[in-house]
Amino acid sequence: MNPAMDDSIEIEPTPCAKDRGNDLPVLNEILHALNELLTHDRQTVIDIKSLPFGPVDEERLSIALGQGEVAATIHTLGESRVTETAYAGIWWVEHRNEQGAVIAKFIEVTYMPDILKAQHEDVIVARQKLKDALETIKLNGA
């Protein structure tokens, strides 16, 4: 029998302090980051790829953080999803490529992730575009 099909095989979640998984130290780091945000207005970004996670650790972290009020999708160079967790100020930022594969995933501890804000350079382009559009409307209306 293929061991992969054998459901009697159970991989134990990695034990850590008090038998928790590797998600526990990350939750502590996030708590510290929230303190930094409140006391020094300093934001923190944690690259999920840099964490030594086992098979179930990311899932456990995700369950522990829960789901909050905001969920946004950005369409540029593939899809990106920004979702607030159940804890205000703690966000998941997930970048996918055009084929839909996750290429980077971060936890951002901030009031609003930078990627959600309109970028200065894009606003300059937008001003010109809107000017041009108005010109066209005026021309068509005349």
Binding site: V45, I46, D47, K49, S50, I74, T76, L77, S80, V93, H95, I103, A104, F106, D114, I115, A118, Q119, H120, E121, D122
Partner: peptide, 25 residues
């Protein structure tokens, strides 16, 4: 035709690829 926001995404994923801290973006 990729926006500055797209460029930011490119930089964030490049930082992750280079294993550099996100503060380097």
């Amino acid at each position: 035709g990729i926006s500055r926001r797209g460029f930011l995404k490119f930089c964030a994923t490049t930082a992750s690829m280079m294993a550099l801290s996100p503060s380097m973006v």
